[in-house]
Every structure is written in structure tokens, then in C-alpha cells.
């Protein structure tokens, strides 16, 4: 072979080195070599990566059975059921969102999360997503809304009380007691007692019978005074 033929072969090899179209080992598949390829490498670059693997483009299913428990004034515990990657890859992490804002992530083998730093008596909405090893992120899980516990009522600051003034012990109410002392008078003299009242303003009531007689108790006996 002459020098001209040599240079043709070299140029062909150089061309093939930089051009994947010259060999059977470079198939036209979209491949990535790691997760970072989605974030910085263009498809054309990917296609030129000789270490690329088959690309998973299917996101995992949404996390299911999200529940929130142990709701306190400032924290709550989220838990959910493990997800599967329907694209054939592996679940790598779960993303936690509070009120639509990303809060944190848990690894694939951790299916719960304690959210702290909450405010008492406040509504929060939680949702989570799952991410597979291809970087595919699922749709949002169903929403779970909670309200944190309210702060306990603060007891009012006790006001210093003045020294109580001694008061007499109240006398318990007495039973009603009567005694049949005697008879004012007998006979058909008009027994419809017409009135009782303190006629002489002495602090004692008199009895006035129908026959218009005043019966006045003087402390020892009844004095009978006809009304004239």
C-alpha cells in the first residue's frame, strides 16, 4: 500500500471515531448514562455517549394512601404506601409538599415523614410525589388537609385578692314549726276571722273577729276589746 492509501484509512478511522454512524455497536436509541444526563446533556450528546443504557421514560405511579396522623400544635406525621416504577426502574425517593411547596424528601425505603415547625390552629395541605431512578417524577398524590391543634387557653393571671373580711356564718334555714297553743274563743260568735293586723302599732298583730272584737296579746294573755 502506498502513502495515499494509508492516509485514506487514517482519515476514515478518525471520521469513524467521531461519527457513530460507522459501526454496528452504536444503535439509534435514546439512552442516558445516569440521572444527571437529563439535566445537562442534550439528546445528541447522549447518543454519542458510548456508556449509555436503555432510557426509562415512564414516571412511577402516584403515591397512594397518604395519611396524616399525630397532628399536634406544631407537627404532623405523614405516611403512605410504597410506589412501584411502572417503567421498570426503581423508586429512589419521595418528595413531600406542604401547601404546594416542596418541603423535603425521603429515600425509597422510608414511607413516613414528620413535618415540624407548623403553626397551631392552622390548616395545611399535604401531597407527595415519587421519583424513579430515571428521574421520572410521578403526578401528585391525592391531597390531605389537616388543622393543627390550637394552643390551650391561657389561664388569666390571677388578680391578687384582698384579705377577705370575715363574715358571719349564715344560719341554715330553719324548719317550719308551729305549735297549737290554744283557743281564742268558742261558740257561734262569728268564726270567720275578718282580719289580722297591727292596729295599735306595737309590733304585734291583733286578731279581729267577725263579731267585731279585737283580740290583743299583751305578752301574757289575750285582751278582748270590742270595736265601738
Amino acid at each position: 500500500m502506498g502513502n495515499g492509501k494509508f492516509w485514506v484509512i487514517v482519515l476514515f478511522m478518525v471520521f469513524c471515531f467521531f461519527n457513530t454512524g460507522c459501526g454496528d455497536g452504536f444503535e439509534k436509541k435514546r439512552t442516558v448514562n445516569d440521572n444527571s444526563s437529563l439535566n445537562g446533556i442534550t439528546p445528541s450528546q447522549e447518543e454519542n455517549n458510548p456508556e449509555a443504557i436503555e432510557l426509562d421514560t415512564f414516571p412511577p405511579s402516584s403515591p397512594s394512601e397518604l395519611i396524616v396522623s399525630n397532628i399536634g400544635m406544631t407537627s404532623a406525621t405523614l405516611s403512605w404506601k410504597a410506589s412501584l416504577d411502572i417503567g421498570g426502574g426503581k423508586v429512589t425517593r419521595y418528595n413531600i409538599f406542604r401547601n404546594g411547596v416542596f418541603v423535603d424528601t425521603t429515600p425509597a425505603n422510608i414511607l413516613s415523614f414528620i413535618d415540624v415547625g407548623l403553626s397551631p390552629n392552622t390548616n395545611y395541605i399535604y401531597t407527595i410525589t415519587v421519583v424513579d431512578d430515571s428521574g421520572n417524577e410521578s403526578a401528585m398524590s391525592s391531597l390531605v388537609e389537616i388543622m393543627t391543634d390550637a394552643e390551650p387557653m391561657q389561664a388569666p393571671t390571677p388578680t391578687p385578692t384582698p384579705t377577705p373580711t370575715p363574715t358571719p356564718t349564715p344560719t341554715p334555714p330553719s324548719e317550719i314549726k308551729f305549735s297549737n297553743v290554744g283557743t281564742l274563743y268558742n261558740g257561734n260568735t262569728g268564726t270567720r276571722g275578718s282580719a289580722v293586723g297591727d292596729l295599735d302599732n306595737d309590733g304585734r298583730d291583733e286578731f279581729i273577729g267577725e263579731a267585731l272584737k279585737i283580740f290583743d296579746w299583751d305578752g301574757n294573755k289575750w285582751n278582748v276589746i270590742p270595736v265601738t
Binding site: 314549726k177 308551729f178 297553743v181 268564726t191 270567720r192
Partner: peptide, 18 residues
């Protein structure tokens, strides 16, 4: 003060001892 009956009988009195 307790009359016994209408227009007849005794008029008794009961002292309140409460």
C-alpha cells in the same frame, strides 16, 4: 289563726316556732 268552720266552733291559734 284557724277558725274551725264557717260560723261555728273554736278559733285556734298556732304559734310559729320556726
Amino acid at each position: 289563726f284557724l277558725p274551725n268552720a264557717f260560723n261555728s266552733g273554736a278559733i285556734r291559734y298556732y304559734r310559729n316556732q320556726s
